[in-house]
Write a protein that binds this DNA or RNA. Structure first.
Length: 424
RNA sequence: GGAGGGAUGGCUGAGCGGUUAAAAGCACCGGUCUUGAAAACCGGCAUAGGUUAAUCCCUAUCUAGGGUUCGAAUCCCUAUCCCUCCGCCA
């Protein structure tokens, strides 16, 4: 959520910044709601002041020994019935403004390039060389199926866009996860964290998935409605919701969770293989930092995700997302795209973002600034470090041999009982 | 599933119809003292909104939403969360 005061004082600037994101900011509507709120609030407050004064007078008179009836009769007059109505109106005006604010995306940072979609993203760097195979490279579906990767089994027990794994494939999947968790917690200073996979509505509002993107989520209706998490960002970031943390910033957390996405609106895209699934695992990095540190933290966090790709010796490129491709809550995002020989393309494997104070304001996540002694909003960041399923895809495709076997990357061998090659 | 108890500021915790936005302690900030620090002592210290050049001031907030009342942290109802006991259970 953006700061109302900031919007009010910088209307043109906000409008321009949001336009960069492809969002049409309705200035007239904002101003209308903002002024309606102020008017309703002012009139309710003056009535409240009158009421409060009258009650105090009655209290004083009773204190002097007057009977309650006489005291009431003497003060009388100021008792009005409008007050409930005025309070309700003020509350509704406040609510309307809040609803509008909750649906306005974060503004991009100045160094975010202009552009409308992923084609306008700007490459920052490439790392590693795509392998030149002496044979025709297969994709992960053809490579994985003989080794225990089964989309048929996934479809059998759940449906399309699900996968099941057995044997070496299941083991590899776990090895990747463990390797990432260990690296981030032991080498990059993240605290290992376990969180619920079902969350409430408030958590999703805090990070920005709701109210606007309900159709992307799996809802679990019941006596109390839950949602399956679309990313660990939701439960981990919300750990600091409604609090003033007494911990020293930065707080860095890493969590491994499954992620569930309905992928509504992506029919026909990436239908083959495990690039786009309803359920996938991800190791997520989350940082809570002082406002002055968030720019540096984004570079650091992205570097931590890159370190995984480098340790696995997977060629990738780093791009900065243009305004039009930037997520709702993000102020700036780097995507890491891994090289997939089966597709002859770089595909997204990590997305690292800073949110400034946007999520913190929605969550009311604060820290105590030692300089002011006051609770102030902190800054949040997160990034995939990395998406486990896509990492597995990248390994299968980049480490394939002509006979269909897969060389196990050295970094993963300790997690595979020393296994060097996976064969059918 | 059954029976109880609870939720107060960054934290602990008093208050249980009218100078209570809320005692006290801790933490934090400033000062005195000290070579420096600690201790001791003195003072300050909730959040949000309205108003303002800024202060003053005004309003709201004692988990949330309703209700009773001239007046609610305090009484009643509902919800949420936490705790204790019983039952069930990976």
């Amino acid at each position: 959520m953006l700061d109302v005061k900031f919007i009010r004082d910088n209307l043109d600037q906000v409008k321009a910044a949001l336009a960069k994101k492809g969002f049409m900011f309705d200035e007239a509507e904002f101003t209308r709601l903002d002024e309606a709120r102020k008017a309703a609030l002012t009139s309710a407050q003056s009535l409240q002041a009158e009421k409060k004064k009258a009650s105090k007078q009655i209290g004083a008179l009773i204190g002097q020994g007057m009977s309650p009836e006489d005291a009431k009769a003497q003060v009388m007059g100021s008792i009005d019935s409008d007050i409930g109505e005025a309070e309700l109106a003020a509350k509704q005006a406040e609510q309307s403004l809040r609803e509008l604010l909750m649906s306005i995306p974060n503004v991009p940072q100045n160094d975010v390039p202009f552009g409308s979609d992923e084609n306008d993203n700007v490459e920052v760097l490439t790392w590693g060389e795509p392998v030149a195979f002496s044979f025709e490279a297969k994709d992960h579906v053809d490579l994985g199926e003989p080794l225990g990767l089964s989309f048929d089994d996934g479809a059998l027990v759940a449906g399309s866009r699900f996968v099941a794994m057995s044997g070496a494939m299941a083991r590899l999947h776990r090895a990747i996860t463990q390797f990432m968790l260990d690296t981030h917690s032991e080498e990059h200073g993240y605290e290992e964290t376990y969180v619920p996979y079902l969350v409430n509505r408030q958590a999703l509002e805090g990070t920005g998935q709701l109210p606007k993107f309900e159709e992307d989520l799996f809802k679990v209706p019941g006596e109390k409605d839950f949602y399956l998490i679309p990313t660990a960002e939701v439960p981990v970031t919300n750990l600091l919701r409604d609090s003033v943390t007494d911990k020293t910033l930065p707080i860095k957390k890493v969590a491994h969770t499954p992620c569930f996405r309905s992928e509504a609106g992506s029919y026909g895209r990436d239908t083959r293989g495990m690039i786009r699934q309803h359920q996938f695992d991800k190791v997520e990095l989350v940082q809570f930092v002082r406002p002055q540190d968030s720019d540096a933290a984004l570079e650091e966090l992205t570097g931590h995700a890159e370190a995984i790709l480098q340790k696995l010796n997977l060629p990738y490129r780093k791009v900065i997302l243009c305004g039009g491709d930037l997520g709702f809550s993000a102020a700036k995002t780097y995507d890491l795209e891994v090289w997939l020989p089966g597709q002859q393309k770089y595909r997204e494997i990590s997305s690292c973002s800073t949110f400034g104070d946007y999520q913190a304001r929605r969550m009311q996540a604060r820290w105590r600034n030692p300089e002011t002694g006051k609770p102030e909003l902190l800054h949040t960041l997160n990034g995939s470090g990395l998406a486990v399923g896509r990492t597995m895809v990248a390994i299968l495709e980049n480490y394939q041999q002509e006979d269909g076997s897969i060389v196990v990357p050295e970094a993963l061998r300790p997690y595979m009982r020393g296994l060097e090659v996976i064969r059918p």
